[in-house]
């Protein structure tokens, strides 16, 4: 097992290197001169100086090498636009997105566990159908549209929650809810099916016959769901990051998604590079976790195949 992890980590590192180089290449193709974005009205001399100060005048391979060198030291350079170290920007923005994602996870759990259990207990009944309807609905709603509807109702009309920004748990509520929607659908389905499995097992029926309270059985069943749910969650994280961009945009929530979008639109090369490294690393670790959980769940896929 350990060998596999090490092997995957090495591959992961390789992937990060390739991805970084690809980004560099893509950015060269980018129309739009970052020097001009910073000082659009400057004359040619000033532009040349600005390009020099950002190292944009050296040839491609030297730029790439310099980037790797600096990255190893932990220095990702300075953002063109914010004039702050990329490192500090990433460290301050990333946790906020984490709070958002964790908030979404929490909400999804709070909503889907009761619904999933209820649905499993009352299989094929009216309640079951309603829960399934809710599940499919939450999967079908575009989450950014839902976010806009939330703003319209809860923030503007009712004034219960702030419509944007960052600061307290209230700022987190609506965005997390919007983000939680896709999670809710998959969670409900998994919880329902796993609970059904547990309830179907013979020894459970036997225990019921002997009078052991249902709640106890439900709890036992739920315990089994945690790992699969976590796996599901990690699988969805990649997609959620994409959704988080739009949600952060709508709520003006200062997380890594919004930062990424603005960095690209502003041609902030060092910030883009830093973000690419950060996000790739996160994705790779996530994928590793997902793959490991797959083997945990389905031993048919031989381990060497990893």
């Amino acid at each position: 097992m350990k060998q596999i992890i090490i092997k995957r980590l090495i591959i992961g590192l390789f992937v990060i290197l390739v991805v970084t180089m690809l980004t560099f290449a893509l950015l060269q193709l980018f129309p739009g001169d970052p020097a001009k974005m910073i000082a659009p009205w400057a004359g040619e001399e000033t532009l040349i100086e600005i390009r020099k100060s950002f190292g944009l005048d050296s040839p491609f391979h030297i730029q790439v090498l310099k980037f790797y060198q600096d990255a190893l030291k932990g220095d990702f350079g300075e953002s063109f636009f914010y004039r702050e170290e990329v490192r500090t920007l990433l460290f301050s923005y990333f946790p906020r997105t984490i709070y958002l994602t964790l908030g979404a996870l929490l909400m999804a759990l709070v909503i889907s566990i009761p619904l999933g259990v209820l649905s499993a207990l009352n299989r094929d009944s009216f309640i079951d159908r309603i829960v399934l309807f809710i599940s499919i609905t939450s999967q079908s709603l575009p989450n950014f549209w839902l976010a806009l509807m939330f703003i319209l109702f809860f923030a503007v009309k009712l004034g219960l929650f702030p419509a944007g920004g960052y600061g307290s748990w209230q700022h987190l509520f609506l965005p997390s809810f919007a983000l939680a929607c896709t999670l809710i659908a998959t969670f409900i389905r998994s919880i329902r099916s796993m609970m059904i499995d547990v309830l179907e097992q013979d020894f459970i029926k036997a225990s019921e016959a002997r009078g052991i309270p249902r709640l106890y059985i439900i709890k036992k069943g739920l315990r089994n769901t945690f790992v699969p749910l976590l796996t599901l969650f990690t699988m969805q994280l990649g997609y959620m990051l994409g959704g988080a961009v739009v949600i952060e945009f709508i709520f003006n929530y200062p997380g890594i998604g919004l930062l990424a979008m603005q960095a690209v639109l502003r041609r902030d090369y060092p910030l883009i590079q830093g973000l690419v490294v950060l996000i790739s690393t996160v994705f790779i670790i996530l994928n590793l976790l997902v793959d490991l959980s797959y083997t945990y769940l389905d031993p048919r896929i031989r381990k060497e195949e990893l």
């Binding site: 739009g32 001169d33 001009k36 974005m37 659009p40 009205w41 639109l265 041609r267």
Partner: peptide, 11 residues
């Protein structure tokens, strides 16, 4: 175009 690009190309 996006706002960020305006300054770079409008002149």
């Amino acid at each position: 175009v996006e706002i960020g690009r305006l300054g770079a190309i409008c002149f």
